[in-house]
Write a protein that binds this DNA or RNA. Structure first.
Lengths: 185, 185
DNA sequence: GTCTATAGGACGATAGAC
DNA sequence: GTCTATCGTCCTATAGAC
């Protein structure tokens, strides 16, 4: 299981970098191929279509997010487990940080990625994450606070992407916890 | 000064709606023209180019943001005035709310709008806003907290755009203030 | 696995009539 | 102010040779 065609991985790496930096729609297959010193049809040997290529880049992050919430939700019929907000927000920050490049790409380009039905999936795990934070049937004001906390942390993972994780995580999580508890307490 | 050609205003309204909903790059001039029952060349009578049309939609929001910070910065050579964070964040929320549709469009599509040199301008007024909040030469941790506060509020203005302002503003500003003071205090 | 060549369509923009 | 017609460019995708 060493190399599932090495070229495929190189295509994914270059495509991800260009998609993130200049936008998905603004990056043509020709540009990706040129950067790799190959031609467009070579791409089509490794990916069925442009959409298939985009999907292959986005999928790992979406999977990570969905497994994150699924692994923390109560088993069928069990009581909702209480989650320490600081721990949950900290773990979520780690995940957002790990996928920060693709995350910003997806958030930015929801319209472009509409054919992948990504909006629905993102909305779903985000909603489930808020329920983990606040418990069932949260008050509107609490949901707004949770949006500040989660959205603010995601912004940090993107805006301070060039700094080391340890420097950003502490203050970002602390601010998010404060935002959440100020309104829910 | 009644109607500076009524068609121009109708074009702007339709274009803004489509740009926000499906993305700038995903909306062609043909689509805008069709929606208005006119043809593409008619657009070119009112706007010099596609880029000119986009710019005309984005400019009012950018102006609003720049005037917001400029009006609160200390006069040349004067002491930096102290700003009450709650008041400043509240005023900023009002502004973000007023321009929420264009704001989300610009944030999302920074790559597409790169030719307008928008990234530079946004980065600048956002930085100046953080200095107003924190005073000169703020600590890195405080800047991160400010990013959570400002970014979180912007997210709220977008995500809860369908609710009345009064319902969203209170909790959002309260959460933002808490995020800011938890780290700076 | 990668190439050359090309089909086929959409788009931005302009010319010129009315 | 708005139209018809069209130019040139770029794109995704495929056919077929090596």
């Amino acid at each position: 299981m060493a190399k599932p065609t090495d070229t495929r991985a190189r295509i994914l790496a270059v495509a991800r970098e260009l998609f993130v930096r200049q936008g998905v729609r603004e990056t043509s297959l020709r540009e990706i191929a040129d950067r790799l010193g190959i031609t467009k049809p070579a791409l089509y040997y490794h990916f069925a279509s442009r959409e298939d290529l985009v999907r292959s880049i986005v999928e790992p992050m979406m999977d990570g997010m969905e497994r994150f919430v699924a692994g923390r939700e109560p088993r069928d019929g069990a009581e909702p487990a209480a989650h320490d907000p600081r721990a949950l927000l900290g773990d979520y920050f780690d995940l957002a940080w790990e996928h920060r490049d693709v995350l910003v790409m997806v958030i930015r380009e929801l319209p472009v990625l509409a054919p992948l039905e990504l909006g629905e999936r993102m909305f779903s795990w985000r909603r489930r994450l808020i329920l983990l934070l606040l418990g069932p049937d949260p008050a509107p004001a609490a949901q707004i606070a949770a949006t500040v906390a989660l959205g603010g942390m995601s912004d940090c993972a993107v805006e301070y992407a060039h700094l080391p994780l340890e420097q950003v995580k502490g203050p970002a999580v602390e601010a998010a916890v404060a935002a959440l508890t100020a309104v829910t307490a």
